[in-house]
Design a protein around this nucleic acid. Structure first.
Lengths: 238, 238
DNA sequence: TGTAGAAGGTGGTACTAACCAGTTAAAGAT
DNA sequence: ATCTTTAACTGGTTAGTACCACCTTCTACA
């Protein structure tokens, strides 16, 4: 279960950046890093590519590599993020409380998102995600029964997407995400352990499989002071 | 003006994928491609990495490289960029108030985002965007003077990106956007016509051109009750 | 006949070695 | 003193090689 070298470099660099460096600080040059880590420049660049892609660092030709300005100690919610992985990388201990799993007839808006006909049911999974025991994100996930028959709480010890893949052979290819800013009400703020009225990211995600069939709809609330949603927008003119 | 090899490979492969292939078709293996193009495997992988990142292809260990199921011919720069269009489509009448345009020496964080040296100036454009006369979004845009010399308020009757292209021959290739949820302070809430403390989306956008030079940095505040940040997330990782 | 295993394909990781292309500052010429 | 050149840094690109991990298929053994 040994991780590839370049991933170890990523983890180590990211940790150092978070704990020892501040925005716009310069990192050691690639040639210095390869000596420090005892790996090839190729491996260093693989790691730096990843960090650059995720916005942790930026590079300037001829000048050096620097810590990104915008990189707060916040967690990126974009690009199919894995809560657990990101929290682990940030040095926090992630936990997931699977609160309830029940078979329901969803409201119309949810049913529409999942392309359900009238009367068709879906599993509703309520989860709370914590880092170091502190609640950070609350989510309600709807999974169509016809696609995930016989889903059990015991399945959910694994990562949800792992269960989809292994038990049901379903794989998400594309997700549409809508991000909103909302003020938390009394109840939600209590769940997330912050003050009522505090700003929060509300994220609606609709995931589809390779046959263009919706397989998941999730509504999440993430603490505004701890999360950012990051995305890249391309404009290829080919 | 010659492009790097791996970028030529990207262009050629993407063209072939668009014109000759369909979703889930298998691409030639990396070792075949390096023979076809007469380049090293390193170069082929650089190209494939880019295509994978952008969701054009996906790779399966041991099996091969394939055309993505859903390949979007995305020509826009995402939600912020097409404010006017999106509002029109939603049946609203979009207007833009260009409030101020001045040449300033930006703060350090902005200067860094735009890769400005000490003392280099940038145009600061303050805009308010409205739909049906209601303020929805407030934005401060910084444009490097060396890239956009002699920018005038009268230029800005056009769409900003049109001006960039037509007057300065600058085209944005990629934008990084970070989205945060914040509580509005007294001042900002007044601008957007809502109550202090109301949740708002705060969006940082850094746009770069084809030479990897930053050409724009914008900080926007969008009313949480009226604005949704929408994005697509590809997934070929699991 | 069935199955384990080898063979050969795929992408993934890793190293070495150069050279190219921006940036900066020290060395040198005026 | 000032300007120009050069050298020495930076990241960017490319080639070549090797081995690992995963997947499919074919083959040989039981």
């Amino acid at each position: 279960m040994k991780k590839p070298l370049y991933q170890q470099v990523i983890l180590d660099l990211e940790k150092k950046i978070k704990t020892e460096m501040k925005p716009n600080d310069r990192l050691p040059s690639e040639r210095q890093l390869l000596k420090e880590y005892g790996v090839s420049r190729n491996t260093i660049r693989l790691a730096l590519n990843d960090l650059e892609e995720r916005g942790v660092i930026y590079r300037l030709h001829g000048k050096g590599t620097f810590v990104s300005t915008i990189y707060l100690d916040q967690t990126n919610l974009g690009s199919m993020y894995s809560f657990s992985e990101q929290m682990s990388e940030a040095g926090h201990k992630p936990t997931t409380q699977n609160r309830t799993l029940e078979l329901v007839t969803p409201e119309e808006d949810v049913a529409n998102q999942l392309n359900l006909k009238a009367g068709e049911k879906a599993y509703k999974l309520v989860r709370l995600r914590l880092a170091d025991g502190v609640p950070l994100m609350y989510g309600e996930t709807y999974l169509p029964e016809k696609i995930f028959p016989n889903l059990k709480m015991s399945d959910l010890k694994e990562n949800l997407y792992t269960v989809m893949k292994q038990k049901y052979n379903e794989q998400s290819i594309l997700a549409f995400e809508d991000v909103q800013a909302v003020n938390l009400d009394e109840n939600d703020s209590k769940i997330l352990g912050v003050k009522p009225g505090d700003a929060s990211l509300k994220i609606f995600r609709r995931t589809i499989n390779d046959k263009n069939v919706p397989i998941e709809f999730t509504i999440s609330l993430a603490r505004g002071d701890r999360f950012i949603y990051r995305s890249r927008q391309y404009n290829h003119l080919i």
